[in-house]
């Protein structure tokens, strides 16, 4: 899911994601739209699972695993999240 295909996620979406990511961020890496989950934040599959569950609960949506392979950065995640919210 290339971010360029969609509008840039809103500041509110990023703020919510940063807050949720913060609880799982053991590296102390700075959080920005281009921050990568695997390389920069060291998120493994277990942490990804817990993080996705926390996003699902906060926004009361379902986030299928199928979309995860295309998500590399926080910005990608924001785009995918807003798309799911718009389809609700």
């Amino acid at each position: 899911m290339a971010a360029g295909q969609h509008n840039e996620p809103s500041p509110e979406t990023f703020a919510a994601l940063y807050e949720l990511i913060g609880t799982f961020n053991k590296t102390g890496a700075a959080l920005a739209p281009e921050t990568r989950f695997a390389e920069d934040l060291n998120f493994d599959s277990l942490i990804v699972m817990e993080f996705v569950a926390s996003v699902e609960d906060k926004f009361d949506i379902s986030m299928p695993l199928n979309i995860l392979p295309d998500i590399l950065t926080i910005g990608d995640f924001g785009v995918a999240l807003e798309k799911l919210l718009s389809e609700r």
């Binding site: 569950a53 379902s62 299928p64 695993l65």
Partner: peptide, 26 residues
């Protein structure tokens, strides 16, 4: 499930309440 065309959603291990919540969303 990775090879399935369906949408895949995981629920918390052995947590029926979590499953219930996820089904309710669908």
């Amino acid at each position: 499930v990775r090879a399935s065309a369906a949408q895949i959603i995981r629920f918390k291990h052995n947590d029926a309440a979590d499953l219930d919540k996820r089904l309710a969303r669908l």
